[in-house]
Simulated assay, not measured.
Amino acid sequence: MGGWAIAVHGGAGVDPNLPPERQEQAKQLLTRVLNLGISALRSDASALDVVELVVRELETDPLFNSGRGAALTEKGTAELEASIMDGYKRRCGAVSGVTTVKNPISLARLVMEKSPHSYLAFNGAEDFARQQGVEIVENEYFITPENVGMLKLAKEANTILFDYRVPLQNGYDNCGVEVENPLQMNGLPISVYAPETVGCVVVDSEGRCAAATSTGGLMNKKCGRIGDSPLIGAGTYACKVCGVSCTGEGEAIIRGTLAREVAAVMEYKGLGLEEAVEYVMEHRLDGGKAGLIAVSSSGEVAYGFNSNAMFRACATQDGFMEVGIWE
């Protein structure tokens, strides 16, 4: 096949009652950043440059859960995390617990290229950001009135707001209807829709793969919680055969080393990209809800999700293009 390919996601799982105008806004944003990536690829930008470019754009728009508009911690603050991986040289960089860096994905790339390390967190990541001269903002920059309202809902329900609407344990859903068989995260009930993680995967015309993921985490998460997004092999992975970015229930993605598993079954079982994605979604989530996007070095693109939906957009050099939300 060959040629470049790109995929973008804005989170897995969507409120079934998401208003049509919000769905349209999401599709417009996905289309805009996809076209931005396509233009860069047509200008011979590297896969690594393109994933950073696209995720920076998503971090700057408050619609999804990364950068501005990120999910808030139990204390009402934003703690951001991101990771990036260059599959061509298998180099990576990641940050967690970032509170004043406007574009965490660019800080993750600087960790990869300008530090001796692969991962920096909290005060150390903040200090490094200042040494590198990246754009710094007040934590309030990331906080939107909508997310303040969602945090209030989460606190009233004494739960984590997750990325799709599910009932609370042994009680009532957010419409006051009595329910059973709730979904749980690590044994604890989770509920209602909140915007989710963003990510981008690219293979360029040279066959080099890269992946990038960025998130604010979960609404009402404990301060200091680290999800799958900054963990190489869990939320993000790229190597010579593919690039993968995940979204959804971070705890399940971590346990399943989801992104790396796609590469592993391609490398060791000889599966194609599409088959690898299907295999991993079926066998590695153990009841968790998640989605992922992937590209292969031969210019293919694939995605999978077992939640009710995933905000996504993808395109290939031979003219294929898709922007979607539902199954």
Results as ranks from 00 to 15, higher is better:
residue 321 M to W: 02
residue 194 A to I: 12
residue 301 V to I: 08
residue 67 G to P: 08
residue 319 G to F: 07
residue 112 M to N: 07
residue 205 S to C: 04
residue 37 G to P: 03
residue 215 T to S: 11
residue 110 L to I: 12
residue 284 R to W: 09
residue 250 G to K: 12
residue 270 G to C: 11
residue 251 E to H: 12
residue 68 R to N: 13
residue 251 E to Q: 14
residue 79 E to P: 11
residue 67 G to Y: 11
residue 271 L to A: 01
residue 299 G to I: 10
residue 287 G to D: 11
residue 46 S to N: 03
residue 116 P to G: 08
residue 174 N to K: 01
residue 112 M to W: 03
residue 284 R to D: 06
residue 70 A to V: 14
residue 141 Y to V: 12
residue 187 G to D: 11
residue 146 E to K: 15
residue 151 L to E: 06
residue 140 E to L: 11
residue 318 D to P: 07
residue 24 E to W: 14
residue 286 D to V: 01
residue 26 A to L: 07
residue 102 K to N: 06
residue 110 L to T: 05
residue 8 V to F: 03
residue 323 V to P: 10
residue 193 Y to K: 12
residue 282 E to W: 06
residue 200 C to S: 07
residue 97 G to W: 01
residue 7 A to V: 04
residue 249 E to T: 15
residue 279 Y to C: 11
residue 202 V to T: 03
residue 82 A to F: 05
residue 4 W to M: 06
residue 126 E to I: 13
residue 21 E to Y: 15
residue 110 L to E: 02
residue 54 V to E: 06
residue 23 Q to S: 14
residue 218 L to F: 01
residue 277 V to M: 11
residue 229 S to F: 04
residue 322 E to H: 14
residue 105 I to A: 00
residue 41 L to F: 03
residue 131 Q to Y: 06
residue 75 K to W: 07
residue 126 E to L: 10
residue 159 T to D: 01
residue 218 L to E: 04
residue 75 K to V: 06
residue 64 F to Q: 04
residue 261 E to Y: 08
residue 265 V to Q: 03
residue 158 N to A: 13
residue 26 A to I: 12
residue 269 K to I: 06
residue 77 T to A: 12
residue 159 T to S: 13
